[in-house]
Design a protein around this nucleic acid. Structure first.
Lengths: 349, 349
DNA sequence: CTGAAAGCGCTTACAG
DNA sequence: CTGAAAGCGCTTACAG
């Protein structure tokens, strides 16, 4: 069992106050006293009890990062970026997975506390609604990433989803596609994000004088690869299949690529594909994936810096922080096919 | 600010003891008293302070899951499995990323404590050595996943890496390959795991009467996709390039697949590829990836159950728990090519 | 069934 | 520069 401050104090023949001062590098300690205490500390292998310290100080020093699914690459990569930025500021963040379940998102975001003991929370909720947010009891700072939940009055950081979806769609149009599908509208999620992407998609079509065909907008249950496979199967069985697809995330797009290969649909020749997120897989897939790349580093930094400000007592009204994004054109929407460039070089269209 | 037990007690006109009893569903409370207290609890919106509770009880109720990289699919998928099994047992686990840095692995695994306050730790360390383990001060139960650190005297769960690597290699041999490379031996990691896989690889070659060519065993810095790309480039520039590659993980294999496509090397026709881990990407890649699939669910369950036993006071000697694995044959090692089966059906070999 | 009180291991005004 | 003491918010033997 770890030694306590009191035990160290007894051994060193000083008060606990003095030991505490040494442990915490309090400057005004006589060098001689410090040496004596340090020796006792070493001999006993003292380790401070973080629980006691936290209780006394009224804060745990822990920031919770709440995400739905750890094994969805976008969240994994985002989490890593957040952990990285947080470390730079000396914050310890700990990842909390909710499986996207409302009850669990509520527990940690709305009720605060729970078995968790976070001083603040960064969250990317999928089921939480504005009603939940209004009922929030916890006073710990909260920063939302990705989703803007209407009327929440909560700080959030996000990219301009409407504009990004517009750009993705416009890219397909400008490369000659005319029958463009959209995959990822939501079945059962509140999914403000999906709605915003559909809005951008529609706007781009309309601006180009192209019709919006409801048949081409396919909702999915999740945003996983398997959903992309299903969606493609459905789209290809249409009387008039699409010649391009804008997927609301890269995982859907990778599912589409997979299903297309197995159906003998050539990408990008027969079908152009664009994703969203710029996860690492898309840089190695065959063909490589054109995608919208949100500046994850910036997202993480904005979130963490805002959090730090709130922890420091900043009471400014809730902020809406916007991060940059970029369209990255790769093979799936027209660049040279990856399969065997020397044997069958296929130019863009 | 949240109300305290004492405030609730005053409002209800009872002692804190009684309030505590109600909060914790202690059975012997008079129904009438309970009702009064409950009302006060509701009116004040009481939330217990987990820090105080933990300090008093001498445990935080938190289990730390220590992994090197959150955004490496294998760890993301493993983490999810562990969180799932832990939930089933009522344990709250929190993910702690170390970036594979020795200092950080030490802080949480060896020193215990730190800013973290875990009752127990499940870890998949990459830099930690047996010396560190012997110097361990923390008395919190520790379960290692994946790596067996010699002489640590610590519980661990793993698959039989030698046997698995043997099977992967034997599969390539039995499908007619003769010049089989291995990618993923370590440059700078302690990497017991890599050594074990090399051992299995060598054994399989030897058993088949095939020579072991040192040129074909390529070490990599990390085990990421980019390392796979580099390794393939190096192998293909050999005077006698390989006709098959056993990659020590799927990420390397996906990098190999990518590089092969861009070089015009056909997989599996010119080159068969086998990975290790069975991450989801490999089920959707082109071609899909043959791989060793460790039973992640079982690994997670064994680790969590062992942990629970230790928390319950089990003091049996350190256990070595073995999980099952399975070779999953997909397109990359000989099944029908995925590219466009109808146009160019390629049988296995 | 409930109250008064001790104590978990710290930090920190308050004195001196 | 250092000591004696209070108190963070709980839980839990000890009485009654």
């Amino acid at each position: 069992m770890a030694a306590t401050l009191r035990e160290v104090a007894e051994r060193a023949g000083v008060s606990v106050r003095t030991v505490s001062n040494v442990v915490n590098d309090y400057p005004h300690v006589a060098p001689k006293t410090r040496a004596i205490v340090q020796r006792a500390l070493d001999e006993l292998g003292y380790q401070p009890n973080p629980l006691a310290r936290s209780l006394r100080q009224g804060r745990s020093g822990l920031v919770g990062l709440v995400i739905p699914e750890l094994d969805v690459p976008y969240f994994a990569e985002l989490s890593r970026a957040v952990l990285h930025e947080a470390r730079a500021l000396g914050l310890t963040v700990v990842v909390d997975q909710t499986d996207g379940e409302l009850a669990r998102e509520r527990e940690v975001i709305v009720r605060g506390q729970g078995s968790a003991m976070y001083d603040a929370v960064i969250a990317s909720p999928v089921s939480l609604t504005s009603t939940d947010l209004k009922a929030r009891r916890s006073t710990a700072p909260l920063i939302l990433i990705g989703e803007r939940i209407a009327g929440g009055g909560v700080d959030h950081v996000m990219v301009d989803n409407v504009a990004a979806a517009h750009d993705a769609t416009a890219h397909l149009i400008s490369s000659g596609r005319r029958r463009i599908a959209a995959i990822g509208e939501s079945w059962n999620r509140p999914a403000t994000t999906a709605h915003l992407r559909t809005e951008g998609y529609r706007a781009a079509l309309t601006a180009a004088g192209l019709p919006v065909d409801p048949e081409l907008i396919v909702a999915t249950r999740y945003l996983h690869r398997a959903d992309g496979v299903q969606a493609l199967d459905r789209l290809m069985s249409l009387a008039q299949p699409p010649d391009a697809i804008f997927c609301y995330n890269d995982l859907l797009a990778l599912g589409v690529l997979h299903a297309a290969a197995h159906r003998g649909v050539r990408v990008p020749d027969d079908l152009a594909v664009v994703g969203f997120d710029d996860i690492e897989d898309g840089r190695y897939s065959r063909p490589t994936l054109t995608t919208i790349s949100p500046d994850r580093r910036q997202i993480a930094r904005l979130a963490v810096e805002m959090l730090q400000r709130r922890l420091d007592g900043d009471t400014a009204p809730a902020a809406e922080l916007r991060a940059n994004y970029q369209l990255i054109v790769r093979e799936s929407s027209g660049a040279a096919q990856s399969a065997a460039p020397r044997q069958r070089p296929t130019g863009g269209r």
